[in-house]
Amino acid sequence: MKHEVFQVMCLIRRSGKTALHQADLIFIEGQPYIVIEWLSGPGIDIPDVKVPLDPKLLHKLPSPDRVYSYENPIDDPRPLH
């Protein structure tokens, strides 16, 4: 399934640190998700690590197009190596 990809400015927490991050944003059945990691291969792009977002905290920015901001920090769910 091909997803329309937007951008979201958000804070991501990982290893006790919080950093501003521009990430991919997709919608699945109207639910917004930040995509932290894609599984890519010949002819495929699948959101491998994604986190659901609260739509009430997601705001479309007036400019540029296709960019949003998210109010709350997001915890990176990937395990630490």
Results as ranks from 00 to 15, higher is better:
residue 48 D to F: 11
residue 18 T to G: 00
residue 54 D to L: 03
residue 6 F to K: 07
residue 19 A to F: 01
residue 54 D to K: 10
residue 27 F to A: 04
residue 51 V to E: 05
residue 32 P to M: 06
residue 51 V to N: 05
residue 39 L to H: 09
residue 75 D to M: 03
residue 1 M to T: 12
residue 71 E to D: 15
residue 70 Y to F: 14
residue 33 Y to E: 03
residue 14 R to H: 13
residue 23 A to P: 01
residue 30 G to H: 13
residue 69 S to P: 01
residue 3 H to N: 13
residue 5 V to I: 15
residue 26 I to R: 02
residue 68 Y to D: 08
residue 37 E to W: 02
residue 62 P to Y: 04
residue 50 K to T: 01
residue 40 S to V: 15
residue 15 S to T: 01
residue 34 I to Q: 04
residue 75 D to R: 03
residue 46 I to E: 11
residue 59 H to K: 12
residue 80 L to G: 06
residue 33 Y to V: 03
residue 15 S to E: 12
residue 61 L to G: 04
residue 32 P to R: 03
residue 25 L to M: 08
residue 27 F to E: 02
residue 3 H to C: 10
residue 25 L to W: 02
residue 63 S to N: 08
residue 55 P to T: 04
residue 50 K to R: 10
residue 24 D to H: 07
residue 31 Q to G: 12
residue 44 I to E: 03
residue 30 G to D: 13
residue 49 V to G: 03
residue 77 P to F: 06
residue 76 D to C: 11
residue 37 E to S: 08
residue 13 R to G: 03
residue 76 D to E: 10
residue 42 P to A: 12
residue 45 D to N: 13
residue 48 D to V: 00
residue 48 D to Q: 07
residue 27 F to M: 05
residue 79 P to L: 13
residue 60 K to D: 12
residue 65 D to G: 13
residue 14 R to M: 11
residue 15 S to W: 00
residue 13 R to A: 09
residue 33 Y to D: 02
residue 49 V to H: 01
residue 73 P to T: 03
residue 63 S to C: 07
residue 43 G to E: 09
residue 5 V to E: 07
residue 47 P to T: 04
residue 77 P to I: 06
residue 19 A to L: 09
residue 12 I to K: 07
residue 60 K to T: 14
residue 31 Q to F: 11
residue 30 G to R: 14
residue 67 V to N: 01
residue 38 W to A: 11
residue 47 P to Q: 05
residue 53 L to K: 01
residue 20 L to P: 05
residue 8 V to D: 04
residue 3 H to L: 12
residue 1 M to A: 13
residue 78 R to P: 01
residue 72 N to S: 15
residue 29 E to S: 14
residue 25 L to G: 06
residue 41 G to E: 00
residue 41 G to W: 00
residue 32 P to H: 04
residue 31 Q to W: 11
residue 42 P to W: 08
residue 22 Q to M: 08
residue 16 G to K: 03
residue 77 P to D: 07
residue 29 E to Q: 14
residue 70 Y to H: 05
residue 68 Y to S: 09
residue 23 A to K: 07
residue 56 K to S: 15
residue 53 L to R: 01
residue 26 I to W: 02
residue 61 L to M: 14
residue 39 L to E: 10
residue 40 S to L: 14
residue 75 D to N: 08
residue 79 P to N: 12
residue 19 A to P: 00
residue 56 K to H: 15
residue 16 G to D: 06
residue 40 S to F: 09
residue 13 R to Y: 00
residue 50 K to C: 03
residue 42 P to D: 10
residue 63 S to D: 05
residue 69 S to G: 06
residue 6 F to N: 05
residue 66 R to T: 11
residue 20 L to V: 10
residue 72 N to P: 02
residue 71 E to C: 12
residue 71 E to V: 12
residue 27 F to P: 02
residue 65 D to P: 14
residue 41 G to S: 00
residue 6 F to G: 01
residue 46 I to W: 09
residue 32 P to F: 03
